[in-house]
Design a protein around this nucleic acid. Sequence first.
DNA 1: CGTCTAATTGAACATCGTCAATACTTGTGG
DNA 2: CCACAAGTATTGACGATGTTCAATTAGACG
Lengths: 248, 248
Amino acid sequence: MARHTAPPPPFPRLEPFKVACSTCCLRHICLPTGLAPAEIEQLERMVHGRRVVPRNTVLFHAGETFESIYVVRTGFFKTSAIAEDGRDQVTGFQMAAELLGLDGICGGAHTCTAVALEDSQVCVIPYAKLDDLSRDFEQLQQQFHRLMSREIVREQQVLLMLGAMRAEQRVIAFLMNLLKRLQVRGFSSSSVVLRMTREEIGSYLGLTLETISRTLSKLQDEGMLEIRAREVRLLKQRQLSQLVRQAA
Amino acid sequence: MARHTAPPPPFPRLEPFKVACSTCCLRHICLPTGLAPAEIEQLERMVHGRRVVPRNTVLFHAGETFESIYVVRTGFFKTSAIAEDGRDQVTGFQMAAELLGLDGICGGAHTCTAVALEDSQVCVIPYAKLDDLSRDFEQLQQQFHRLMSREIVREQQVLLMLGAMRAEQRVIAFLMNLLKRLQVRGFSSSSVVLRMTREEIGSYLGLTLETISRTLSKLQDEGMLEIRAREVRLLKQRQLSQLVRQAA
DNA sequence: CGTCTAATTGAACATCGTCAATACTTGTGG
DNA sequence: CCACAAGTATTGACGATGTTCAATTAGACG
């Protein structure tokens, strides 16, 4: 987790080329969902550009003034926040078409830090402009509200996980959640390449890295899944999802 | 019957059925924040009315079609959701001026159940109308976005708590959070009347009711606080907040 | 190919959960 | 207003789950 101290802040690199929501393969699950072609064109003009975020670099820091929200275009991110006791804890992982920075709206400053876990690209959406535009386009406003609400629901589900599940259940639920999100994006429906370390998984799930490691090993011994370094292949999804459903 | 607790009720208990945001004592922390008088008037007209929710009755059920969001006017609520293993887990507690139902926006159905923990009243705000009106009033839109974002941040803070804090720290953090929110609303800054059972606190904090009870007793033995049934008086807030800050 | 980080595994220990017995509150009807 | 019942809270003993510390191995990257 000494990641933040890594390379110094890179200059925000904005791509010169035009953003093209209308032809983006993510348009069906991203902000443009539900918009008419003419509206999408306006949305494109609003997007400030793309920003390249190399692996292990920071997209935004907790405490930084909030100005834009970001949509992951390619790559993978983690967000982390400083707990009251000073620990840096992972609060989420984000992949393509997921939003980053929504927490900054309420106080005008980001409350978490976003770091790319692999070379990534994000679309930069100036929040003030999004607000303006969504006052003109009902569909855009509704989609934005849905996405914010989805964030609330997603966090609620994590709460449910942290509140009552045991280690094994948390790890399985985590893997299956990743898988489901990847599946929606057209990736394999049985294997995941983990972009994060055991320590980061542990931090997210409220467990230690040792427990993550042990749990994965145990599930492998039982033939439930197969681990090769950071690639996890879920072999018996039905049984795995049943394990999650079982009461503690 | 007249159980005299420290905090004097700062809000009038008796009210007509017409909604009057402009004279409501909560207007500075509620939806109308930032609106011009004329705009507030329009907002009032939009609010569908008030709804009385007696103690232990349901405001909305998980799975119910989402149509309105609610603002707590008086009283106290809990929200709970069904975890994958079938357990009913408390996901939050809401007091005056806090919103209920935001999770329903993304999927068109409520994802949690809201129950009044004391006789309560809520303002009913049809979501479709709120969307319409907020397209006309920039300030209303912004305030609504802030409130949704606040919900995201609030849940993030709970994540931080569940992820790494030990039982004692969770209980203290919980009490101090309640206190802070009550303080903003003009209540006592040192004592809280717990509207929920130990079991509900435990469910929320990912602990058992026994652990809650033991922890409170221990803190009382140490002179940190004083418990009389459901009234908790925090005696040494400085030391308590330091306990939370301490690494596990 | 060597160094550094990440991951695995073991053993001892701490925290919290479970089960159980008891006491206290609160609400109800006599 | 009191007595009783149901729900809620406290407390103890014991055990399970997950943490901590430590040693070792495997991978990643220059």
